[in-house]
Design a protein around this nucleic acid. Structure first.
Lengths: 88, 88
DNA sequence: CGATAATGTAGGATATATCCTACATTACTG
DNA sequence: CAGTAATGTAGGATATATCCTACATTATCG
């Protein structure tokens, strides 16, 4: 584990998982990583690689920005996210 | 360096840099990494962390998806990217 | 052309993402 | 309530992102 400090960005993994009722194990298997790794990422305990971020987003069929953000986005619906994104 | 294999995603860093005529050194300083690291990322020689990806995107005032993509996007204008993104 | 800046290549050092195993705790479901 | 699945915590092992230094090559610009 190494670092016990939180990473600076947020993610909606836990939300997306429960929303679609998929377990960490299932998600981990799908993207080819360890269960615990999913746990650490959800708890923001480390700074995953972009490649992995892409795989996770792809699993949920979402863009990177819909899953990861420097702003808190747990309370946003996917529709609201779309609007936010198209501002860039 | 370690790996000499290419990473699976693309990025528009070089394009964005030349477009706005900023050197690697300037970019590296701005986001707090080494010049060579920028080089390796541009040449897709490694899998940068999400945190760094956010910093790089922020430097150009763009979303993650506008800078990094699993698809080739060097030929796309920012306007085209906006359209692509709002599809998610 | 000549000087200086920007980029590429190489290799060693260090930090940390990710793996993996083990066990504790908490949720779910019959 | 009992049993099983899902999650949390911990710590050691390994792979690799990132640093850093040095030098070669290629652009830029006077």
């Amino acid at each position: 584990m190494g670092s016990n400090k939180q990473v600076s960005f947020h993610n909606r993994l836990k939300l997306l998982r429960t929303e679609r009722s998929v377990s960490r194990q299932t998600l981990a298997d799908a993207v080819g990583i360890h269960v615990q790794t999913v746990g650490y990422i959800e708890r923001r305990q480390y700074n995953l690689s972009l490649e992995l971020a892409f795989k996770l987003a792809a699993f949920f069929d979402l863009s990177l920005d819909s899953v990861f953000s420097t702003e808190l986005l747990d309370h946003l619906s996917n529709e609201q996210l779309k609007v936010k994104q198209s501002r860039r």
